[in-house]
Computed example of a mutant assay.
Amino acid sequence: MTNDVAPPSRYKAWVSHLQDSTAGQWSVTNYHDDTKGHSILIFNSTDTEGTLLSTVGLMDVNISAIADKELRTEILLDHRGRAQHDANVLATIAFYVLKNKWRPSPGVVFEEMVTFYLPETTLPHVLFIPPYQWTDSRMTKATVGEFLIHPLLAVPISESERRIVSSYGYERLQTVWEDSQTDVLDWNRDGRIEA
């Protein structure tokens, strides 16, 4: 791991869990915000199919909106091939959770996250969904140290897809994706669809 200080054992446990769940060459890098006041570790695993990234340490934030309830997550990004600035996109998402107290959950959209780094993209926003790429439950939830983590996958989406989620809900967009056999891990897809 590349880091300024030794990471807690729960972070190491999450990285081990990610290693066991991926087949690629991996690394962990520390990303800082512009003021250097906040940082987040990003796990990166790359193979011939593409790249999987994950935050490491977002688990320290309780994102539950219910008092006296605890909800922990780590955010994943996954895509076919290579995507420029993908780790920066993921770090930006994490900083909005850490600094601005935004709460990711299934069906929630963080707007303009991709645009910060790829202004010409057709997929400027990210939608959080449960990870679906594994046939077993290893990424549905994971016990890491004292935390039960519910990972989320951040999928870049277009403005038309965002409007579907806003007007009809995430389930409707899922149906549209299934009907059109959309590969949501393709960051170069057009994204223009109708509800």
Rank of each mutant, 00 (worst) to 15 (best):
G24T: 09
R163A: 01
Y170G: 13
A67E: 14
Q133D: 15
E70S: 07
V184H: 03
T92S: 03
D78W: 09
L153Q: 07
F110N: 09
H125L: 12
S64L: 13
Y170W: 13
N44G: 08
Y96K: 06
P119I: 14
M139V: 12
S158A: 05
T143P: 01
D60V: 07
M1L: 01
E159H: 02
E49V: 05
H17K: 10
N62V: 07
S180P: 05
Y11N: 00
I75E: 01
D183G: 09
V155I: 14
Y11P: 00
G37M: 14
M139P: 05
V114R: 02
L98A: 02
K101L: 08
I66P: 05
G37N: 12
Q84T: 08
H32S: 07
F147A: 03
H38T: 13
V184E: 02
V109A: 05
Q181M: 06
M1F: 01
S27M: 11
E49Y: 05
E159K: 03
G107N: 14
I157Y: 00
T48C: 04
D179P: 05
H85D: 06
A142H: 07
T140P: 12
A94M: 06
L148Y: 12
G169P: 11
R80L: 10
G145Q: 01
M139G: 05
I75A: 02
N62S: 09
W102F: 11
E194M: 07
F95D: 04
E146G: 06
V126L: 10
V108F: 15
R80F: 10
A91H: 08
S167N: 10
V144Q: 00
N188C: 12
H150D: 07
I129Y: 08
G37H: 12
R172E: 14
H32E: 06
D183K: 05
P130A: 11
I66R: 13
V108I: 15
V109S: 06
W187S: 00
W26G: 03
T46S: 11
P8T: 04
L18S: 08
S21C: 14
T140H: 15
R192G: 03
K12W: 01
D86Q: 05
Q84N: 09
E146R: 09
R72W: 05
L127Y: 10
I93T: 01
I40T: 04
A67G: 15
H125E: 11
R138K: 14
F116Q: 07
P151Y: 03
P7A: 00
S166E: 13
I129R: 11
L118N: 04
A65E: 12
G107F: 15
W14Y: 02
D179G: 06
